[in-house]
Write a protein that binds this DNA or RNA. Sequence first.
DNA 1: ACTAGTATGATACACTTGTTTTAAGAACAA
DNA 2: TTGTTCTTAAAACAAGTGTATCATACTAGT
Lengths: 209, 209
Amino acid sequence: MASAPSTRLRILNFIGKFLDDRGYAPTVRDIARGCKISTPSVVQYHLNKLEDEGHIQRDPEVFRSIQLVGRKREAIFEVPLLGSIAAGKPIPVPTADSWTSAPEETLQLTDEVIRNRKGIYALRVKGNSLIDALISDGDIVLMQSASTVEEGEMAAVWLKTAQEVTIKKVYHEANFIKLEPANREMAPMHFPPDEVEIQGRVIGVLRKL
Amino acid sequence: MASAPSTRLRILNFIGKFLDDRGYAPTVRDIARGCKISTPSVVQYHLNKLEDEGHIQRDPEVFRSIQLVGRKREAIFEVPLLGSIAAGKPIPVPTADSWTSAPEETLQLTDEVIRNRKGIYALRVKGNSLIDALISDGDIVLMQSASTVEEGEMAAVWLKTAQEVTIKKVYHEANFIKLEPANREMAPMHFPPDEVEIQGRVIGVLRKL
DNA sequence: ACTAGTATGATACACTTGTTTTAAGAACAA
DNA sequence: TTGTTCTTAAAACAAGTGTATCATACTAGT
């Protein structure tokens, strides 16, 4: 068992702080200096313990290779904010160009949301035309490029004669395409297949207040 | 000017890849091996150029101190998912214990959403009782501990006699507290001050589809 | 008291690694 | 040509650094 506000813990905290401050890991002697330990061997001793306990991880013989386990690194994805989605306007669809040229604005999202899907972009919602999809003015919709979607997936669709974009769950029925609002209190609508055009899959909604 | 798919660029990409793979920076000799360069001095030469150009940054004499500028480090926050929010149940309010003991589940969010606010936690929404706040079943609500909120801020409030939790914009009026739904098509409600209890500030909603 | 496990200390070895020096070829402009 | 700049090359130095060894003290359990 660890005993006091032990040297062990001091070392662990020092490593974290060093990492935050400098961006790379401390050496054995950095730790010794920082924790007022007289000699590398004591640090070495505790580092071995910490590694056994699973708190840190390091590559033998490699300088500055200490890493804190449980600290995630580099799971951030930059998602381009390609424009806005508003009533009566087709949504901006990403072109080949969109991915290479730097967009004006980006969102930073984690792996958890992206789940290594490709072709993700974001649109800011303007107005309350999507209220039946439980999406309000100012929300950000995460899209994935797609011209078809699976049964029941949420998609942004363009209604040709209505000249309107909407977000609904899409089901393919016999001779119609059924569009079902996220808000189940509202009735689904049916359209002939050539009347709707899938603009992309909706994979998330983000509302910052 | 840089000329070809130059050695310079190869080195830069190698550094990035090495960083992703190993979690710490390569040495001059690592780079030489990885880019099929015969000698450290060539790498050294290009590293100096890259540093002049502002692409990398490093501390002289410090091993493995290369960092890519423009790469965010440590912008991920782990937000504990403390429970769920459902109709007719008070929401879980974080205790001192909640922050120290490891929660079963966490969300990873970026600085962009957290904006160095403290006391952030998350709740999963069960059921459709919050539909008038444009929040549906399965959504995740980001909360900040608070017992009072500013005018017009979105808050989770406990309605005492109704025995119900709801999410509304809060306004303090003469003798009443006005609760306004996010969905503006719906009417606001008024309650005497001792009838409502602020459980926390709502700082965001996340819907994964 | 005895022993085992834990923690601290001092010192030294050998390898890693940033850096310097010197050299030479290639591209380009004056 | 001449000179300058950019690039690749080889070798070596000196300091930084992980690691090992040996020794000492403290604590807890028997």
